[in-house]
Design a protein around this nucleic acid. Structure first.
Length: 580
RNA sequence: GCGCCUGUAGCUCAACCGGAUAGAGCAACCGCCUUCUAAGCGGUAGGUUGCAGGUUCGAUUCCUGCCAGGCGUGCCA
């Protein structure tokens, strides 16, 4: 609708340029917007004000000239110039319900856009497989999953990916933690390192290792302490690194038993958790594969060739300051090991070479310091950093009964995402996590999320859907005839009905805006608006009336609302219940 | 110190990439159930958009400075 109207104005501008009233270089894109105030008609545009200055005319005068050139159209009932030079349009009554017809016709595809041929990858969650997902990961998961849905609905080819950090020091710490618990289970006395992972699941994995493994070596805990710096607050890292080194040495090839056991158990737990959360991935990309494929070394060589590396104090550095970073970064440590960042460079090179037009990273806000360096790496490798979009997700604070819940990972007593889901349900989780702008702090009120009232936006929206379903179940004589409804939409004349039709017509735009701006929260606000429009209508007028023509016209409108709510909730990964 | 993000009604947040009288919900107050779900609806009240400048027809939006809060700033991941 907007596009059609915009096209009319574009034609008018073409004319004015032909007539030399406006210079082609001064031309601006026509913006049509929904009016906020009904007194301003249905749509409004500021074209006149945008072109007035260049054409050396008063805005209102410019508006008259533009309107004069506007091709005639059945869509428009009347046009008026208002305020400082706005052009307000009132649409023809006959087309007011076009969105409803459109919606009924396209059903589950209503709101979706045609193919764009743009390939986009969205990488999200990517939590280290060192433990179960906790509530902090939930927001990234919900946001990322919704983005994937939105971008698909927008017409892009989207691939969702999870980067598995299955190499590196954190994994070694995990493996040694499990191994030490295993030693405990064999009856040894172990002083557990303060830098180790402590959760109950580590002990469980130690137990499983004892039951299933075939570790032949008879290792005494004391042997592992040989030449290892004593554990202390300042030296805890050196302490655990020593334990890891000795464990690897003593275990030899058997080192991989605790390692693989822990990795596969935790990863499959994460996969199951995310799948139950409705966050689906096309690809689980292993960091280890970058090591075994030699891509890490290749990327170092490539940077070397391009002259972006230098040696200093025994380490190999990437001169990221050439690309705006405030500090150069180490790619190979003094001890010969590469860093987490080196893997990231190899990974970004791998992603970029897979031919995506756009690559989106969803990161926790604590990673914002990495944006510059990852873009620097892409640039140093000769890629256009403009292909990368990094979206930060701020942390969510959980509240229950007005009290903020503390999440301490130290004791291992954190709230897992699974616990949260079991507590308040997937629907409320998904909705609340994306309800706010992603880069904004989120207060997640658990009491509200479970409350069954209009204060709870999830229930409010779902309730509208359930109410519609119930109305349809209430038809007991002549069945609903959609064509009869469509043919009699002119029977719908109240303000509530017109408002609903307009709101339904906004849905495709909302998807476009939300997808283009990566702003998932817009879907929530939209659905709340739509639900409010519906509840208002429902409350004031009866749908199942005697006259079949009017009844079916109303039912057609109700069905369109139902479709939009279902489509919208499905983008969010939230169910649309038939009864509540 | 430096970098990034944020500051809008008492609270939680919107505001269509510069537009008209800045909008919702909660909390407060007043109303609406013999009717398809009251898990709902209507109404009243609530603002110097952190502060001060600047850019222009027009600023919550863009620029500068200041104030306040959050996060980051490892040869950690």
């Amino acid at each position: 609708m907007k596009d059609a109207v915009a096209a009319l104005f574009e034609q008018a501008l073409d004319q004015l340029i032909d007539e030399d009233i406006i210079q082609a270089t001064d031309r601006r894109v026509v913006q049509i917007e929904n009016t906020r105030d009904p007194a301003h008609g249905d749509l409004a545009t500021n074209v006149a004000m945008m072109h007035a200055k260049a054409a050396q005319m008063a805005p209102r005068e410019m508006a008259e000239v533009i309107i004069d050139k506007l091709p005639p159209s059945k869509m428009i009932r009347y046009i008026e110039i208002a305020g400082p030079g706005f052009i307000n349009l009132c649409l023809a009554q006959e087309i007011a319900f076009e969105p409803v017809i459109n919606c009924l016709e396209h059903n589950e595809h209503f709101g979706h856009h045609g193919h764009t041929n743009e390939r986009i990858q969205v990488e999200y969650v990517s939590a280290n497989p060192t433990g179960p997902l906790h509530v902090g990961h939930g927001r990234g998961a919900a946001y990322g999953a919704t983005l994937v849905n939105l971008l698909s609905a927008r017409g892009h080819d989207v691939e969702a990916e999870y980067y598995v950090n299955d190499a590196g020091r954190q994994m070694d710490i995990l493996a040694v933690s499990v191994f030490l618990r295993y030693l405990e289970k064999t009856g040894q006395c172990v002083s557990f390192p303060s830098a180790g992972y402590r959760g109950d699941y580590i002990s469980d994995l130690g137990e499983r290792l004892l039951r299933k493994s075939s570790i032949s070596s008879k290792i005494k805990f004391n042997e592992l302490l040989k030449n290892v710096i004593a554990d202390s607050e300042e030296k805890k890292d050196a302490h655990i690194d020593g334990l890891i080194q000795n464990s690897k040495q003593c275990l030899g090839g058997e080192w991989w038993q605790p390692f693989d056991l822990a990795l596969s158990a935790i990863l499959s737990d994460i996969k199951e958790d995310l799948s139950e959360f409705g966050a689906n991935f096309d690809q689980w990309f292993s960091e280890k594969s970058l090591v075994s494929s030699g891509e890490i070394n290749m990327v170092i060589a490539k940077l070397e060739d391009r002259g972006h590396l230098y040696e200093n104090a025994g380490a190999l550095w990437f001169r990221s300051t050439d690309f705006g970073d405030d500090k150069d970064r180490v790619v190979r440590r003094e001890n010969g090991e590469t860093t987490y960042f080196t893997s990231d460079i190899a990974y970004i090179a791998n992603k970029l070479s897979r031919g995506f037009d756009r690559i989106i990273y969803v990161w926790g806000a604590d990673h914002h310091g990495y944006i510059v360096r990852i873009k620097a790496a892409a640039q140093a490798l000769g890629f256009d950093p403009g292909r990368l979009t990094i979206r930060l997700v701020q942390f969510a604070n959980l509240y229950k009964d007005g009290e903020r819940l503390q999440m301490s990972t130290r004791s291992g007593s954190f709230v897992t995402l699974r616990e949260l889901r079991e507590d308040i349900g997937r629907d409320a989780c998904r909705y609340f996590y994306v309800m706010r702008k992603a880069d904004q702090h989120l207060d997640f009120d658990l009491s509200l999320a479970t409350s069954q009232s209009k204060d709870n936006p999830v229930y409010y929206v779902q309730y509208a859907h359930a109410r519609i379903c119930r109305v349809f179940e209430g038809i007991n004589d002549t069945p609903f005839d959609q064509n009869r409804g469509i043919n009699n939409l002119a029977d719908l004349t109240t303000q509530e009905e017109l408002d609903l039709a307009t709101t339904i017509g906004r849905f495709p735009e909302v998807i476009k805006r939300a997808a283009d701006g990566l702003e998932a929260h817009l879907v929530c606000y939209y659905l709340q608006d739509l639900a409010a429009d519906f509840h208002r209508w429902y409350n004031g007028s009866r749908l199942l009336v005697e006259t079949l023509e009017t009844r079916d016209a109303r039912l057609a409108l109700a069905k369109a609302v139902q479709i939009v709510i279902r489509n919208g909730l499905s983008l969010l990964g939230v169910s649309a219940p038939r009864s509540m």
